[in-house]
């Protein structure tokens, strides 16, 4: 939809440019001003703040990280050590981190795409009352400090029999669980915090997508006698495809970059590394243990993983094609 509009505007611009007469000769002192006013330059002036901040704050550090990953870095002593950092990377802790991060990403992508889509559809339907309250309530967690959330989750899922979570499972006759010290429950907590935090944001994306679906489609479906599920399957879902691809992509990237969810639960050192993530490993090695070259090498690997996974996903789903193709 959006793409189509842009297409039209471009077409119109093109027409105008073709019909335009040759500009009159410009006087010298006015040249600078008209240079800035010209259509070739102005767009670049407007995007320059982004380009400059991208170059300084993203591209330069990325290149620097590549360089650092081949160095051993200590105050006053920086030495090139070739591939030594990379040779050390593929150790059990790294694979544990990779496995944790992958499970986490798959789980959060599944939850954070399906559930917000259903919630958004419900919030958009006429059947639900107090929509505003629900929308706000869903969005609030993304505004809370994750540290505060971590403390609440830690207390909620404390290992003693008196914690809320253990009281709840106790109702079903289950013994108290050491939530933060067991593999599966540690992962559950991380996924839970992430889902709780980002649910509302993704609901917003889907709500925006739903507003764009033409009501006439539903009306004609009604005339054809389609039921609620058929309408969802054949109208809502296909129309939401661009949004689904977008939300999935940012969820994949966010999933591989996970750090805070683990950090607030275990402050960097989880028992048996059950909560070790790739970025957590980078932080532990690079900053906490002052081995920045090795940390940079981990960072490069994470970058490559995210890059490859996202590209593959976009290729498979056709995310690179234009919407109207």
């Amino acid at each position: 939809m959006i793409n189509k509009v842009r297409h039209d505007v471009e077409g119109f611009e093109f027409e105008r440019r073709k019909n335009r007469k040759e500009p009159p000769p410009v006087k010298k002192r006015k040249r600078a001003k008209s240079f800035l006013n010209s259509k070739q330059v102005v767009p670049y002036v407007f995007v320059s703040p982004f380009i400059i901040s991208f170059l300084i704050l993203t591209l330069y550090p990325t290149i620097q990280a590549f360089v650092m990953s081949f160095q051993r870095i200590l105050p006053g002593q920086v030495t090139f050590i070739g591939f030594q950092n990379y040779e050390r990377i593929f150790n059990p802790a790294f694979f544990k981190a990779l496995a944790n991060t992958t499970i986490y990403t798959v789980a959060t992508v599944a939850i954070l795409v399906l559930v917000p889509m259903i919630l958004a559809t419900l919030l958009d339907s006429k059947l639900v009352r107090f929509k505003t309250i629900f929308r706000s309530a869903l969005f609030i967690p993304s505004l809370t400090s994750v540290v505060v959330a971590g403390i609440i989750f830690r207390l909620f899922f404390a290992e003693s029999g008196g914690s809320i979570a253990n009281q709840i499972v106790g109702v079903f006759g289950i013994d108290p669980i050491s939530w933060q010290y067991t593999g599966w429950s540690g992962m559950l907590l991380m996924v839970l915090i992430a889902s709780w935090r980002w649910m509302g944001v993704n609901v917003l994306y889907f709500l925006a997508g739903l507003q764009n679906i033409s009501k006439e489609l539903y009306e004609s479906a009604d005339i054809d006698g389609a039921n609620v599920f058929q309408k969802f399957r054949y109208i809502t879902l296909p129309s939401l495809k661009p949004i689904i691809i977008f939300v999935t992509t940012i969820s994949i990237i966010g999933g591989f970059r996970v750090f805070e969810e683990s950090y607030v639960l275990w402050q960097g050192n989880s028992p048996g590394n059950i909560g070790l993530t790739l970025v957590g490993y980078l932080y532990e090695q690079g900053i906490q243990q002052n081995d920045m070259g090795f940390g940079a090498a981990i960072g490069v690997i994470v970058l490559l993983i995210i890059f490859i996974v996202s590209i593959l996903y976009l290729l498979i789903t056709g995310g690179f094609k234009r919407g109207d193709e």
Binding site: Y181, G268, N269, S270, P271, G272, N273, L276, Q288, Q289
Partner: peptide
Amino acid sequence: TPDVLSEIDSNIMHS
């Protein structure tokens, strides 16, 4: 020492 302390935290005492 930081490496040892972090091994104690995350592996030794746990297992």
